[in-house]
Design a protein around this nucleic acid. Structure first.
Lengths: 157, 157
DNA sequence: GCGATATCGTTACAGTGGTAAACAGTTTAA
DNA sequence: TTAAACTGTTTACCACTGTAACGATATCGC
């Protein structure tokens, strides 16, 4: 009758403190999406960060590692392993740049472009399925609010 | 003129691929909030996970570690260090339960309750400031959509 | 030109946050 | 009573990130 923890059944039964915090809900939602992302891409799939790096490389050929790190919001030291992995898959190449011998431009290979297209479709499908209960309008609203938090104003859109 | 990476100026200049993905925006927004949380609580503040554990313990006195881990969505092995930390601060105590010698109920100390109240105020202030540009309605919408992703239906609200 | 300063990619290391497997002690069910 | 399940814990990992340093190179001030 008085077993400890009996009053706490499910996470949703906590309407007071944590559940009203944006940060808490943001983290929990992020974990859900992240797990579904991994499961959807399977064991052959890249992690979200590596997929992001590949995507930005395909969309910005000959981008510098430093510039890519800035776009991803991580340190350039952290990007080295990511680029190593992608280069190991043969998805991109580090190429010397004539004008500046410090930098190495990242160029996607044809296989990298193909893999990117393939995985992008899988990622879109994963999001479509995961957010199936959300209307397009809700999804747009969510994206707008998340960008607002990020400080990415949609003043140009 | 043809410096690599020149085409990629800011993260917001990438309206095509990544920026339209909920997962990507969710992660970036989460990082922003997480960093502000740490900065707002200062060096004496608890991490978000430890704060969450303390909050749930205060709101559910005599909760079991296993039950708390379930509520937090983490493994109970991972909760041990968190409870150790909180017990080290004198914020809660592990207490033996008469009926079941396996479990140890978590009970917040008066200092733990005071610390929780103090830090909750700081966290509320942090969120109020960080989301100042969002209307109350927008915040409510954001919370609702995040809970939807979490699978936490607000059928009771 | 030359020296100071800055940038690039890289390495090594530490810290955080989380999982998985095993374990002894205990309780519950067959 | 034996088998199964649960609790807290330790230990070992793994993914991700930041910091600090480094050599090589570029750039700026003079």
């Amino acid at each position: 009758m008085e077993k400890p923890g009996h009053t706490a059944a499910k996470a949703a039964d906590n309407p007071s403190g944590l559940e009203s915090l944006v940060g808490y809900n943001l983290k929990r939602a992020y974990v859900v999406v992240q797990e579904d992302f991994r499961a959807a891409l399977g064991q052959d799939g890249l992690s979200a960060r590596v997929f992001s790096a590949l995507t930005l490389t395909v969309e910005n050929p000959n981008i510098t590692q430093s510039a890519l790190a800035r776009m991803l919001g991580i340190e350039r030291s952290g990007l080295v392993a990511i680029v190593d992995e992608l280069e190991g898959y043969g998805y991109l190449k580090r190429q010397a740049v004539p004008g500046d011998r410090r930098v190495q431009a990242l160029a996607p290979t044809p296989q990298g472009e193909a893999a990117h297209a393939r995985m992008t479709a899988r990622v879109r499908a994963h999001e479509d399925r995961l957010f199936a209960e959300m209307s397009d309008k809700e999804k747009q609203t969510l994206l707008r609010l998340l960008k607002k938090i990020r400080g990415v104003g949609n003043d140009a859109g």
